[in-house]
Amino acid sequence: MSNVLVWIIWFLAAGGCLATGVAVVSVTNPFYSALALIGNLASLAVLYLLLAAEFLAAAQVLVYAGAVMVMFLFVVAYLGGRADAPWAGGPPLLRAAAVVAAAALLVEVVVVVGLAWGDNLQEPAEVSDSFGSPAEIGELFVTSHLLAFEITSIVLLVAAIGGVVLGTTPEKEEAE
């Protein structure tokens, strides 16, 4: 793949990723917000591909765009997708504090990246073709990261229980 082509793809993916990100947090209707997140996840998957993480890109599309987002859309549909005030009410001081906090976080991170650029971000390691392939990841998951694998499954099980417990909440009777 030529260098220019990679840059173009990168620009499209990164731009799409940021634009959809902004859309997620700024649109009023949760339905569009969820749709924007799908776009966000998809562009992230492209970035993963560029970073030689094929398996993760696939997982991203399957797990997120496939499963999680469907769940989201179901819930949004169930709730009726009501519009929502775009930005929080609450005391102005609190709002200002939130913006300042988020901005500080951003500035910090960007500055950090900028500072580190010159030192050690120039030369990524050489990787073989099988880097990020399902086989390698699978092997790591059952050897050195066995525990992580097990815990992940426990966490998913817990979530399933939670879904059942919370999902079976009885409707509030109108009389109450």
Binding site: C17, A101, A116
Partner: peptide
């Protein structure tokens, strides 16, 4: 090929900030 890792990190940082803002500001 293509952009340095730093560019990806910048994107990630911006995305993180956008998300944080959303958590703090949306109702």
């Amino acid at each position: 090929d293509g952009p340095d890792i730093g560019w990806y990190l910048i994107v990630a940082a911006l995305l993180f900030g956008i998300g944080a803002l959303g958590v703090m500001m949306r109702r």
